[in-house]
Amino acid sequence: MYEPNVVGDWREYDEHAGLRLRVHRLEPAEPPRGRDDAAEGLTYFRVRITVENRGETPCAVHLEDGQIDVRVGPDGESAFLDWRNSQFVEGFDVHPLRRVTAVLYAAAAEADLSQVDVQVQLRVDEEWAGRRMWTGGLGLPEGATGAAPTGAARDGGLAHQVSAFLRGQADEGAA
Protein backbone atom coordinates (compact mmCIF):
# COMPACT_ATOMS: atom_id res chain seq x y z
CA MET A 1 0.00 0.00 0.00
CA TYR A 2 1.32 3.41 -0.97
CA GLU A 3 1.70 5.81 1.97
CA PRO A 4 1.83 9.58 1.43
CA ASN A 5 4.86 11.53 2.54
CA VAL A 6 4.64 14.09 5.32
CA VAL A 7 5.37 17.69 4.32
CA GLY A 8 9.11 18.12 4.80
CA ASP A 9 10.09 14.54 3.86
CA TRP A 10 12.41 13.84 0.93
CA ARG A 11 11.23 11.27 -1.64
CA GLU A 12 13.77 9.55 -3.89
CA TYR A 13 12.85 8.48 -7.42
CA ASP A 14 13.74 4.91 -8.38
CA GLU A 15 13.32 5.69 -12.09
CA HIS A 16 15.86 8.59 -11.90
CA ALA A 17 18.91 7.56 -9.90
CA GLY A 18 20.03 10.23 -7.45
CA LEU A 19 17.03 12.50 -7.93
CA ARG A 20 14.88 13.36 -4.94
CA LEU A 21 12.00 15.71 -4.28
CA ARG A 22 10.44 17.34 -1.25
CA VAL A 23 7.39 19.46 -0.55
CA HIS A 24 8.16 21.80 2.33
CA ARG A 25 7.63 25.16 3.96
CA LEU A 26 3.84 25.00 3.99
CA GLU A 27 3.09 28.37 5.58
CA PRO A 28 0.66 31.29 5.49
CA ALA A 29 1.90 33.98 3.09
CA GLU A 30 0.65 36.80 0.95
CA PRO A 31 1.70 36.65 -2.73
CA PRO A 32 4.40 39.13 -3.82
CA ARG A 33 2.34 40.90 -6.50
CA GLY A 34 -0.97 41.16 -4.64
CA ARG A 35 -4.01 38.97 -4.20
CA ASP A 36 -5.99 37.56 -7.12
CA ASP A 37 -9.61 38.80 -7.10
CA ALA A 38 -10.79 35.18 -7.48
CA ALA A 39 -9.35 34.45 -4.00
CA GLU A 40 -11.69 36.91 -2.28
CA GLY A 41 -12.38 35.73 1.28
CA LEU A 42 -9.79 32.91 1.14
CA THR A 43 -6.57 32.56 3.12
CA TYR A 44 -3.35 32.49 1.10
CA PHE A 45 -0.53 30.06 1.78
CA ARG A 46 2.77 29.17 0.16
CA VAL A 47 4.41 25.81 -0.45
CA ARG A 48 7.91 25.15 -1.75
CA ILE A 49 8.82 22.14 -3.88
CA THR A 50 12.53 21.35 -4.14
CA VAL A 51 14.23 18.93 -6.54
CA GLU A 52 17.76 17.83 -5.67
CA ASN A 53 20.19 15.98 -7.96
CA ARG A 54 22.47 13.62 -6.04
CA GLY A 55 23.28 11.67 -9.19
CA GLU A 56 26.35 11.86 -11.39
CA THR A 57 24.88 13.58 -14.47
CA PRO A 58 22.81 16.73 -15.00
CA CYS A 59 19.10 16.35 -15.75
CA ALA A 60 16.50 18.73 -17.18
CA VAL A 61 13.69 19.29 -14.66
CA HIS A 62 10.20 20.56 -15.45
CA LEU A 63 7.82 21.48 -12.64
CA GLU A 64 5.09 23.64 -14.13
CA ASP A 65 1.39 24.36 -13.75
CA GLY A 66 -0.67 21.23 -14.25
CA GLN A 67 1.99 19.05 -12.60
CA ILE A 68 1.04 20.17 -9.08
CA ASP A 69 -2.36 19.63 -7.48
CA VAL A 70 -3.31 20.98 -4.04
CA ARG A 71 -6.31 19.66 -2.11
CA VAL A 72 -7.54 20.88 1.28
CA GLY A 73 -9.91 19.86 4.04
CA PRO A 74 -11.43 16.50 4.92
CA ASP A 75 -13.26 16.28 1.57
CA GLY A 76 -10.17 16.98 -0.53
CA GLU A 77 -11.53 20.06 -2.27
CA SER A 78 -9.27 21.81 -4.74
CA ALA A 79 -7.42 24.87 -3.46
CA PHE A 80 -7.31 28.03 -5.56
CA LEU A 81 -3.89 28.04 -7.27
CA ASP A 82 -2.49 31.49 -8.00
CA TRP A 83 -0.54 30.77 -11.18
CA ARG A 84 0.28 34.44 -11.72
CA ASN A 85 2.26 34.73 -8.48
CA SER A 86 3.76 31.24 -8.41
CA GLN A 87 7.29 30.51 -9.60
CA PHE A 88 7.78 27.30 -11.58
CA VAL A 89 10.75 25.35 -12.93
CA GLU A 90 10.64 25.21 -16.71
CA GLY A 91 13.34 23.03 -18.26
CA PHE A 92 16.12 23.82 -15.81
CA ASP A 93 19.30 21.71 -15.95
CA VAL A 94 20.01 20.56 -12.40
CA HIS A 95 23.66 19.57 -12.11
CA PRO A 96 24.96 17.07 -9.54
CA LEU A 97 24.80 18.31 -5.94
CA ARG A 98 22.48 21.17 -6.92
CA ARG A 99 18.85 21.99 -6.17
CA VAL A 100 16.04 23.87 -7.84
CA THR A 101 12.88 25.11 -6.08
CA ALA A 102 9.39 26.02 -7.25
CA VAL A 103 7.22 28.28 -5.08
CA LEU A 104 3.47 27.81 -5.32
CA TYR A 105 0.91 30.28 -3.92
CA ALA A 106 -2.56 28.93 -3.21
CA ALA A 107 -5.63 29.95 -1.24
CA ALA A 108 -8.47 28.14 0.51
CA ALA A 109 -10.98 28.58 3.31
CA GLU A 110 -9.09 28.99 6.59
CA ALA A 111 -11.06 26.17 8.25
CA ASP A 112 -9.75 23.68 5.66
CA LEU A 113 -6.06 24.53 6.00
CA SER A 114 -5.39 22.09 8.84
CA GLN A 115 -5.32 19.34 6.19
CA VAL A 116 -3.43 20.05 2.96
CA ASP A 117 -2.45 17.43 0.37
CA VAL A 118 0.02 18.29 -2.40
CA GLN A 119 0.44 15.90 -5.34
CA VAL A 120 3.39 16.36 -7.70
CA GLN A 121 4.25 14.70 -11.00
CA LEU A 122 7.77 15.64 -12.00
CA ARG A 123 9.05 15.56 -15.59
CA VAL A 124 12.75 14.78 -15.96
CA ASP A 125 14.58 14.77 -19.32
CA GLU A 126 11.20 14.70 -21.14
CA GLU A 127 10.09 11.59 -19.19
CA TRP A 128 7.28 11.62 -16.64
CA ALA A 129 8.07 10.35 -13.15
CA GLY A 130 5.40 8.74 -10.99
CA ARG A 131 3.00 10.88 -8.99
CA ARG A 132 3.91 11.47 -5.36
CA MET A 133 1.81 12.96 -2.56
CA TRP A 134 2.69 14.89 0.58
CA THR A 135 0.26 15.61 3.39
CA GLY A 136 0.41 18.25 6.09
CA GLY A 137 -1.37 21.35 7.27
CA LEU A 138 -0.82 24.94 8.26
CA GLY A 139 0.27 25.09 11.87
CA LEU A 140 1.49 21.46 11.90
CA PRO A 141 5.23 20.84 12.25
CA GLU A 142 7.04 19.50 9.19
CA GLY A 143 8.15 15.87 9.19
CA ALA A 144 11.75 14.82 9.57
CA THR A 145 13.84 16.12 6.70
CA GLY A 146 16.07 13.04 6.52
CA ALA A 147 15.73 10.40 3.84
CA ALA A 148 14.18 7.88 6.24
CA PRO A 149 11.51 5.65 4.70
CA THR A 150 8.02 7.05 4.97
CA GLY A 151 6.23 5.89 8.10
CA ALA A 152 9.42 4.79 9.87
CA ALA A 153 9.65 6.15 13.42
CA ARG A 154 6.37 8.04 12.95
CA ASP A 155 3.78 5.31 13.36
CA GLY A 156 1.41 7.69 15.12
CA GLY A 157 2.00 10.53 12.66
CA LEU A 158 -0.31 12.11 10.12
CA ALA A 159 0.93 9.95 7.23
CA HIS A 160 0.19 6.79 9.24
CA GLN A 161 -3.31 8.06 10.04
CA VAL A 162 -3.98 8.84 6.37
CA SER A 163 -2.64 5.43 5.33
CA ALA A 164 -4.79 3.64 7.93
CA PHE A 165 -7.86 5.52 6.72
CA LEU A 166 -7.16 4.62 3.06
CA ARG A 167 -6.64 0.96 3.99
CA GLY A 168 -9.97 1.01 5.85
CA GLN A 169 -11.71 2.52 2.82
CA ALA A 170 -10.18 -0.12 0.54
CA ASP A 171 -11.30 -2.91 2.89
CA GLU A 172 -14.86 -1.54 2.95
CA GLY A 173 -14.90 -1.31 -0.87
CA ALA A 174 -13.73 -4.93 -1.22
CA ALA A 175 -16.43 -6.23 1.11
Results as ranks from 00 to 15, higher is better:
E90S: 12
E90R: 11
E90Q: 11
E90W: 05
E90K: 09
G91P: 00
G91I: 00
F92R: 07
F92C: 01
F92M: 04
F92S: 02
F92T: 02
F92G: 00
D93C: 01
D93T: 02
D93L: 08
D93A: 08
D93H: 06
V94G: 00
V94W: 00
V94Y: 00
V94L: 02
H95E: 13
H95Q: 09
H95L: 08
H95K: 11
P96H: 05
P96T: 03
P96L: 05
P96Y: 07
P96F: 06
L97M: 09
L97F: 09
L97E: 13
L97Q: 14
R98V: 01
R99W: 04
R99C: 06
R99T: 15
V100T: 14
T101P: 00
T101A: 06
T101D: 05
T101E: 14
T101V: 05
A102C: 01
A102I: 00
A102K: 03
A102E: 00
A102L: 01
A102F: 02
V103N: 03
V103E: 12
V103T: 15
V103F: 01
Y105I: 04
Y105C: 04
Y105N: 02
Y105L: 02
A106P: 13
A106H: 06
A106G: 08
A106C: 15
A106W: 05
A106I: 03
A107R: 06
A107W: 06
A107S: 05
A108H: 04
A108V: 05
A108S: 08
A108F: 04
A109M: 07
A109R: 14
A109G: 10
A109T: 09
A109N: 11
E110G: 08
E110S: 11
A111I: 12
A111D: 08
A111K: 10
A111P: 05
A111R: 11
D112F: 07
D112I: 00
D112W: 07
L113G: 06
L113A: 03
L113W: 04
S114C: 08
S114D: 14
S114F: 10
S114A: 11
Q115F: 10
Q115S: 14
Q115T: 12
Q115E: 10
V116T: 02
V116R: 07
V116F: 04
V116Q: 07
V116M: 07
D117Y: 12
D117K: 13
D117G: 11
D117F: 14
V118Y: 07
V118F: 05
V118E: 02
V118A: 04
V118D: 02
V118L: 03
Q119W: 09
Q119R: 15
Q119H: 10
Q119M: 13
Q119C: 08
Q119N: 11
V120P: 00
V120F: 08
V120S: 02
V120K: 06
V120A: 04
V120W: 08
Q121C: 12
Q121G: 13
Q121W: 11
Q121I: 05
L122T: 12
L122C: 10
L122P: 15
L122R: 09
R123S: 13
R123F: 10
R123P: 03
R123T: 15
R123Q: 15
V124N: 10
V124R: 10
D125Q: 11
D125I: 12
E126Y: 14
E126K: 14
E127A: 15
W128S: 15
